[in-house]
């Protein structure tokens, strides 16, 4: 497998604040990285650096290219969809497809048209007349019809209704399955993307608070659903978070306490959302 993205010691400082502090990661073909964090955690800055639109310290290579000095070349293999529409509103669907076919060497216009034919998006329609979901769908169709190796999604389904969400993820997963590609998804909706991810990078105030593949992540934490009477014992294990229920409390613990906690209640695998919320709360 080939390394598609490598970022080493990425730091982005603004006058008074540090948006990203010493973030490093690598992404191989077949990996899906979830970029998690609250607003202002540094997700956008990191994405900006990957896209070459933000100056930064540290070394980034996407498909072996420098995003700033080799942007034009890189854009044959790198694409980006955000929650803000970037498609030119004054163009029609047919016009934007024609333009892309002219300037993008690997764009397959018949494939794009075929993808769009399964949706409500008519070629003669102006982009400004499309709904938010349609615009995202159109953008994804354009990207799928090119030879994109690395796709970065920034809150892609924000404000989309359920039907468009479904089509979006369906096309995305099929496309991802069909090639040697890597995907980076930044999203608040942790539950929605959790099962797509192979890796996680969690940021808090610009710093990495969690990094690794999903399997090791589940090996790092567990939840014990214990009766109230065990409260004092469990508090000794420095629980990360707790959620009180009827007669029992769910405690999120680090896996080093697993053998100690096993007799105290039912052991549950935490989902990403629970770990996310717990880690974001920690130390605030």
């Amino acid at each position: 497998m080939s390394t598609l993205v490598s970022a080493a010691h990425i730091t982005k400082k603004y006058q008074s604040t540090t948006a990203v502090k010493d973030v490093s990661f690598e992404l191989q073909a077949g990996q899906v990285l979830g970029l998690l964090g609250h607003n202002g955690a540094g997700k956008s800055s990191l994405i900006g650096a990957l896209l070459g639109s933000l100056s930064h310290q540290g070394e980034i290579r996407v498909c072996g290219l420098n995003p700033v000095s080799q942007r034009a070349q890189l854009m044959s293999n790198l694409a980006y969809i955000s929650d803000v529409n970037v498609l030119p509103e004054w163009m029609t669907v047919a016009q934007i497809l024609r333009y892309t076919s002219g300037v993008h060497p690997s764009f397959d216009i018949s494939k794009a048209k075929q993808l769009l034919s399964s949706t409500q998006i008519a070629l003669s329609k102006k982009i400004s007349a499309l709904s938010k979901g349609m615009k995202v769908q159109l953008h994804l169709s354009i990207i799928i019809a090119t030879d994109t190796k690395v796709l970065i999604l920034d809150e892609p389904t924000l404000g989309l209704d359920l039907i468009y969400r479904d089509t979006f993820y369906r096309h995305l997963i099929e496309w991802f399955h069909d090639g040697e590609r890597a995907l980076i998804i930044a999203s608040h909706e942790v539950n929605e993307i959790e099962h797509l991810l192979t890796d996680v990078l969690m940021l808090k105030q610009g710093k990495v608070v969690l990094q690794g593949d999903m399997d090791s992540l589940h090996a790092q934490y567990f939840i014990v659903d214990a009766l109230h009477q065990h409260q004092e014992v469990i508090k000794q294990m420095s629980p990360i978070s707790s959620q009180a229920g009827l007669g029992s409390t769910k405690w999120l613990l680090k896996s080093q306490y697993r053998s100690q906690a096993e007799g105290l209640g039912e052991i549950i695998n935490p989902n990403l959302q629970e770990i996310f919320i717990a880690l974001q709360k920690e130390g605030v």
Binding site: G30, V32, D166, Y169, R170, I173, E174, F176, H177, D178, E192, H195, L196, L197, T198
Partner: peptide, 12 residues
């Protein structure tokens, strides 16, 4: 491919 797309999960 179909199962992954239907269930919205990673094909691996």
């Amino acid at each position: 491919r179909a199962v992954a797309a239907d269930m919205k999960i990673n094909h691996q």
